[in-house]
Nucleic acid binder design. Structure first.
Lengths: 326, 326
DNA sequence: TGTGAAATTGAAATCGATCTATAAAAAATA
DNA sequence: TATTTTTTATAGATCGATTTCAATTTCACA
């Protein structure tokens, strides 16, 4: 592996000049530039990222902390964040926390020691900023975890409104909301509030069912759906806080011979790939994950490179995608 | 951020001593050790990873290249690789290649410049080693891409055998195999060979249908399944090369009013989370993804740390998980 | 022809660790 | 007590980049 020095020697200049050219700072004549380009090509030169980071006191890494990579919502997040990160010439350090605050702290420590340009986190750990010590911008997505940490969310309240309005407009008389785990993601509670407000305004009875953290992680919502169907046989419209629960509702109903959308209509949340693989395909509230990822990555980069401030809260619009479950 | 030097000064020793203690190499008296520990605690010291990597000429990063993070098979791979990597004190650099060789080359270049301890790749790019230049162990998982690159696969042939035997034992008279994309993953062809050999031995007619790369990436197998059902109405057992196709078969059949498992039985491959969310739940061939990830990560680390050689091919057993589609 | 400003290059310090060679102190042995 | 051996600690080079400061060259203009 050849170094700056090798390139410099071969081009007959000093490392300073080569470095200046690489970072195009200061003056370098066209003639020398060509000699250097030539030398770099001949030696197949790649700058050593560590020397660079050591000198600059910052790296091209961006950290992403998610509860799990298996969950299809987060895997979509990971996929689009990675694409944005790499498009901007940065690299993604992926961390899965399993929702354990201790692991999150450790990851922050690690990311900090790696002088990342920034961290994107999807976590529910409230006020995490008080427990960590990091000198890089942190952005929370999908959740608000601290007043100090900028958050990029979708319009959860509006999502709830759209879902309820849609179900009611389709003729549902009694609604239920299954939350992903209401104490986990405070901002997602707004989905329920939006839903509730519409129900109340229109005089439609409704109930709320809350999943546990364990169910959220294992994506195992079987029992909670059964419980709902057992205890509230008159519910004819269900709004779930994520598509995986919606999928489970469909599977369970199909098992019980309940026809969707005839007997029960279902609206999910997120719009993950699952929605179109299922039969019936799932009506859902789409979160603009790619846009959110793009925004998160670009905010971090412009903060890191040009010290542009990051707005403390950005809300992206949501959209109801009508499919076969309603 | 405090440095080794700060710690050394505070403890009244030199950096050499502190470094020796950190890497426990050479002699350090218990008394000095305590002073150093004390100083480190007081200063909340974290070693600078870059200085370390620069000096050692290697890092704690492990690269993982997958076609996409959205695909549920790869997201399971990502999840378990990340867990293993972090358990061993390493960090995961995630790269998604979209199956584009050019992006893969760039990622290899980048990983190389970051002196990763090793690279785990799930790709179909044959003989990629001839196009890249990396000075770290590379391990291919799920696919064999070059005789020079060690591969960790599941027993694909046996998977095909198990699937065919199972379908036949359940009374199927005419079988079909839908391959993920047969030209993409040479080793997965063995799934078909195992399947075919059993069919031929037992005298069961069978057909093969191949998906395209585009379908593989978009996970959109709708048209291919419809084509199968249209052209071969007498098929009563389908073995798919991955669970997503199997899910699509179920959805499409359900749409057409074809009863599973009564009219058509289905066996998938991989055992991703989808299998149990679906109704009927999907009978599948389980790949030991966690074991494969564990093995891959540990091989890389023991190669990097102790220069232990990596066997050129490891095959993990597969297992048929019987569920409701058969 | 001289002058100052702009353009071009270089020497050497720096980032924060590791590591070799060496010296000093402590313990063991003669 | 003298000598060897074992422990312990240090100084200073090194990894491969960036960057400050200074030196030199070029060039327009009076």
């Amino acid at each position: 592996m050849s170094t700056l020095k090798d390139v410099a020697e071969r081009a007959g200049v000093t490392v300073t000049t080569v470095s200046r050219m690489l970072n195009n700072r200061g003056y370098v004549s066209e003639k020398t530039k060509n000699k250097i380009r030539q030398a770099m090509k001949e030696l197949n030169y790649r700058p050593n990222e560590f020397a660079r980071a050591l000198s600059l006191q910052r790296s091209n890494f961006i950290g992403l902390i998610v509860p799990s990579a298996r969950n299809m919502f987060f895997s979509k997040v990971i996929d689009s964040v990675e694409r944005q990160v790499s498009k901007h010439g940065y690299k993604l350090l992926l961390c899965t926390s399993n929702l354990e605050p201790k692991k999150e702290f450790e990851y922050f420590d690690m990311l900090s020691a790696n002088k990342v340009a920034g961290v994107i986190i999807a976590s529910h750990t409230q006020d995490i900023d008080k427990k960590i010590n990091i000198n890089a911008p942190v952005i929370s997505i999908d959740r608000i975890i601290s007043p100090q940490i900028p958050a990029i969310c979708s319009d959860n309240y509006q999502g709830g409104v759209l879902a309820a309005e849609h179900l009611i407009s389709k003729g549902c008389k009694k609604l239920a909301h299954i939350s992903g785990s209401i104490h986990l993601n405070m901002d997602a509670n707004k989905r329920y509030y939006g839903f509730k407000d519409v129900c109340e305004k229109k005089g439609v009875p409704h109930i709320l069912i809350d999943a546990t953290e364990e169910q959220f992680l294992s994506m195992n919502y079987d029992s909670i759906v059964n419980m709902l169907l057992d205890n509230y046989p008159d519910v004819d419209g269900i709004f779930t806080s994520n598509d995986i629960i919606a999928a489970q509702v469909i599977a369970t109903c199909s098992r019980r011979g309940i026809k969707i959308p005839d007997q029960i209509k279902v609206v999910g949340y997120d719009d993950i790939d699952l929605c179109t693989i299922f039969n019936p395909s799932i009506t859902t509230i789409r979160q603009a994950i790619s846009e959110i990822s793009l925004y998160a990555v670009e905010s971090i980069i412009s903060k890191a490179e040009k010290d542009k401030p990051i707005p403390s809260c950005i809300i992206f619009p949501v959209e109801l995608i009508e499919r076969e479950t309603t």
